[in-house]
Computed example of a mutant assay.
Amino acid sequence: PNIIADSLKISCYNAGHDGQTIFYEQAIIRMALSRYTPKLVIVDLNPEEMYYRDIHYDRLNVLAPYYVDEPELRDIYLLKGIRDRNRSDGLLVHPSTEAAQNFWMTHDAFQEWILPINSEKIKMFSKIYQFNSSILDILAGIYKNRKSESGFKPLKGIITEQKAQELIRENAELRNQKGKVVDNNKVKGLEEMLSNLTSKGTKVFVTMSPALAPFTTEPSYETIVNVCKKYNVPFTDYSRDTRYDHLNYFFDNHMNKEGANLFSSHLASDIKKTFFTPTASILE
């Protein structure tokens, strides 16, 4: 953030959260826009986060402590109790299309029909439940105490060749999984973010960070590109940029401090070219 701030002459903060997805980013944007209008928002995405995964809904518990005081976040948090089922107003949740069409072969179909409710809405009546997910975060904050640079916590160290190859294989297996479905809730979340930000005059720059192996064109990737085109938002995939094709820039799947600093410098330069030169390309 500091490199970007110095280059663009604006204050900058990294509001990302490791392991989170578009839902968390959607919540952050809603909270920000309820208070002020930022000049620039950089949205960093990974194609895998756009697919439906139960664990992504489980991780919505990070928003639970804010459920009461931040009403604009409630419908995002309540997705935890809806997931891929069909939404309805209030407490009821209709069974998923899959459960309706193939009752006997769908996991948890019986529960969806017998208890067609959003259980998270009921649980939120408990003041204790809202903070169940906070204990580990609080302890980590106390004992880890890793210094933050405007929200960014740099990773120090260099990944080994063996570990890099292991992660590349794991990532390839993840990308090649069969039956992956782009999550409509996430697509709607991304569209809401870009629509709300651009309508308020905020400059938005969507990226994919450098990676150990470049992302490939797949349904989720194409979805991100198409949404960016729809809202005329610049998109750049840095995972295919050969300038970062060095293990010295990585700690694990994430870049280390040296790599992050290099990426931030290039990112700031590209943002300048995109928004402050009349011939800048909208989509790279």
Rank of each mutant, 00 (worst) to 15 (best):
Y51Q: 11
D108P: 10
E70I: 01
T216P: 00
K200H: 14
Q111Y: 11
C228G: 09
D241G: 04
S199Q: 15
L115M: 12
Q101K: 12
L283Q: 14
D6N: 13
E72G: 02
N185R: 04
S239K: 05
V204H: 01
N102S: 15
H94N: 14
I3A: 03
F125D: 12
C228H: 07
P95W: 05
S209L: 00
F131Q: 15
A213Q: 11
D44L: 00
E161T: 10
L115T: 13
E70M: 10
V182K: 05
R35A: 05
A260S: 15
S133P: 13
K147P: 04
K257P: 05
L197R: 02
S34Q: 09
E170H: 13
K121F: 01
A164D: 05
T97G: 09
I114Y: 14
F215K: 06
N261R: 13
E48L: 11
Y57S: 02
K153M: 06
E161H: 10
D252A: 09
N132G: 11
A27V: 00
A280I: 00
L267A: 04
N46A: 08
H266I: 09
D84H: 14
I117A: 11
P219K: 00
V182P: 13
H17W: 08
T198W: 06
L167G: 06
M208P: 10
E49Y: 09
P71Q: 07
T242P: 08
Y129Q: 11
Y77A: 05
A260K: 07
E161R: 08
G19Q: 05
D84W: 09
I128F: 13
L78G: 07
S199N: 15
H56R: 07
T160P: 14
K9I: 00
L63P: 13
D84S: 10
Y57L: 04
L262I: 12
I114H: 15
N102A: 12
S264V: 03
E149R: 15
